[in-house]
């Protein structure tokens, strides 16, 4: 805020002059960056494809409906696989993420200078890489199949569960922990009686939330060969079998909505 003297009396401005120049310069920079980025992005664009995109879209839509309902017979097993990838992947992630979270939380880590940075690094590395990229790597290493999908989901989820869980651990009520320690309990007992009961609700919420996300993610892992319904999606897209694609989209959407409903119900029951 600034008030400036002018010949015909003071003028009120929201910002001082250097502030408004900086702000103006910031916006200019953003516009400039946008133009540059747009140039870089569209350098090799064949615009003819874009101009007939509405036509293409209409055409695509025309070919997508009606869905080929009979294809459903071939989707039950991939769907079951998809759910397994998400569920087993989440379980594996829990097993790996819980110790990492305890090592990463400031108030439970055995060594804040050595162990904590390693645990934080594991969490960050896991979070930075999308499940689909993990799957891409694992398929290259392990070969296509459910196992690659499960491990990909687990690797991505470690960071998510680990981060939220260690934040929950750092927020616990220390007086309850102190009270348990004062009884002469050992460190493992303090963990069991003082800390674990406090983080259980957060833990349940986090894992259910992640399971829900994992259901979504596992539906597309098949695109890179990591099993599940994505395999059928890829085959149908590659074969231009659009009515099948539509059916797969419907199945995926339904599964996602159902899993959201299930996780909301379970969460309500647990907490």
């Amino acid at each position: 805020m600034a008030i400036r003297q002018a010949p015909h009396g003071p003028i009120w401005r929201k910002r001082t002059t250097p502030q408004s120049i900086a702000l103006w310069f910031g916006w200019l920079l953003l516009v400039l960056l946008f133009v540059l980025a747009w140039e870089a992005m569209t350098r090799n664009q064949i615009w003819a494809f874009v101009w007939d995109a509405p036509e293409q879209a209409a055409d695509l839509f025309g070919r997508m409906v009606p869905p080929r309902w009979s294809y459903m017979d071939q989707l039950w097993v991939p769907l079951w696989d998809t759910i397994n990838i998400a569920t087993l992947g989440t379980l594996l992630a829990i097993v790996l993420a819980v110790p990492v979270a305890f090592l990463a939380a400031r108030n439970t880590t055995p060594s804040p200078l050595l162990v904590r940075p390693i645990a934080i690094f594991i969490i960050v590395a896991s979070r930075s890489v999308n499940a689909l990229i993990w799957a891409l790597l694992l398929v290259a290493i392990l070969g296509p199949g459910l196992l690659a999908g499960i491990i990909a989901i687990a690797l991505r989820s470690i960071g998510f569960i680990g981060k939220l869980l260690y934040e929950a651990i750092e927020e616990i009520d220390l007086r309850q922990v102190e009270a348990v320690r004062a009884t002469g309990a050992g460190p493992a007992q303090v963990l069991d009686y003082g800390i674990v009961p406090q983080i259980m609700p957060a833990f349940a919420g986090i894992t259910l939330f992640r399971w829900d996300i994992n259901i979504r993610e596992s539906t597309v892992l098949g695109l890179v060969g990591a099993g599940g319904i994505g395999l059928q999606l890829k085959a149908s897209v590659d074969g231009l079998a659009w009515p099948q694609v539509t059916l797969i989209f419907i199945v995926i959407l339904t599964t996602v909505i159902l899993s959201e409903w299930v996780s909301a119900r379970v969460r309500a029951a647990l907490i």
């Binding site: 992005m41 569209t42 293409q56 689909l132 597309v220 897209v237 959407l253």
Partner: peptide
């Protein structure tokens, strides 16, 4: 409710391969 990757498949089908579909 539509996954990014699924949306990407549709846009690639509409405007062709390349970053515009990604955008």
């Amino acid at each position: 409710s539509l996954q990014e990757i699924i949306v990407a498949i549709l846009f690639v089908a509409m405007v062709g391969f390349g970053p515009l579909a990604g955008f």
